[in-house]
Amino acid sequence: MNGIQRLALALVIIGAINWGLIGLFQFDLVAAVFGGGEQSAFLARIIYSLVGISGLVCLSLLFKTDEAYSKQRTTRLDT
């Protein structure tokens, strides 16, 4: 897994936690942190967009075979 995939996975996990908070407690953490004024609402939209794009990047991880992953890991351990 390269750096972009790791960052995307971290953002997807943050998004999943946020959706869990919304579903269980009706609390939107991103809106609470960035949703104050007009400028803050713009920042919240950027965060939501980055999480959405990260989900698309992580689709490549879903379709990656176990063979390809273990080969990539073995190559990295050898160097």
Rank of each mutant, 00 (worst) to 15 (best):
L50V: 09
E38N: 14
F42D: 13
R45C: 05
A16V: 10
G23Q: 08
A41Q: 15
L21G: 00
L56P: 10
F27D: 14
A32H: 04
S60V: 07
D66L: 11
F42Q: 15
S54A: 07
R73A: 06
L77P: 01
I47K: 00
E38I: 13
Q72K: 14
D78P: 00
Y69R: 15
R45F: 02
G52F: 08
T74I: 06
S40K: 10
L43H: 07
V30P: 00
S54P: 01
A68T: 15
K64I: 02
A68N: 11
L77C: 04
Q39D: 06
F63W: 09
R45M: 07
S70E: 13
L21I: 02
A31H: 03
S54I: 00
D78I: 15
W19Q: 12
D28Q: 09
A41N: 14
A16L: 11
S40E: 13
W19H: 13
S40C: 09
L56E: 12
D66H: 07
V33A: 15
S54Q: 01
A32V: 15
N18E: 08
F25L: 14
L43K: 06
S60R: 04
K64R: 15
I22L: 11
Q39R: 12
K64L: 10
F63V: 03
L43M: 11
G23C: 10
A41V: 04
L77R: 12
A41K: 12
F27I: 01
A32Y: 02
A31S: 10
Q72F: 03
F25C: 14
I46A: 07
Y48N: 05
L62R: 09
Q72L: 09
L50H: 04
L29W: 00
D28M: 06
R45E: 06
T74E: 11
A32I: 12
L77H: 10
V30N: 00
A44S: 12
D78Q: 14
A41R: 11
R73C: 05
S54Y: 03
Q72S: 15
G37H: 08
G23H: 04
Q26S: 13
E38M: 08
R73Y: 13
Y48E: 03
I17D: 04
V57W: 00
I22Y: 01
C58R: 03
S54C: 07
S40M: 09
G37K: 07
G52W: 08
S70C: 09
A31M: 10
G20P: 03
F42W: 15
G36M: 05
K64D: 11
G35K: 01
D78C: 13
A16M: 11
R45A: 11
T75R: 08
G52K: 04
I46V: 12
V57I: 15
S70H: 14
L61F: 12
N18V: 09
A68L: 05
F34G: 00
T74R: 15
Q39P: 03
R73D: 04
V57P: 03
L59E: 05
E38Y: 06
L56A: 09
S40R: 09
A16N: 12
C58E: 01
T75L: 03
T74N: 14
T75E: 06
L62V: 12
S54W: 01
A68I: 07
F63G: 04
G23M: 10
A31N: 04
G37N: 15
S70L: 08
L24P: 00
E67P: 01
A16G: 13
L62P: 02
A44V: 13
L29K: 01
E67V: 01
F42M: 14
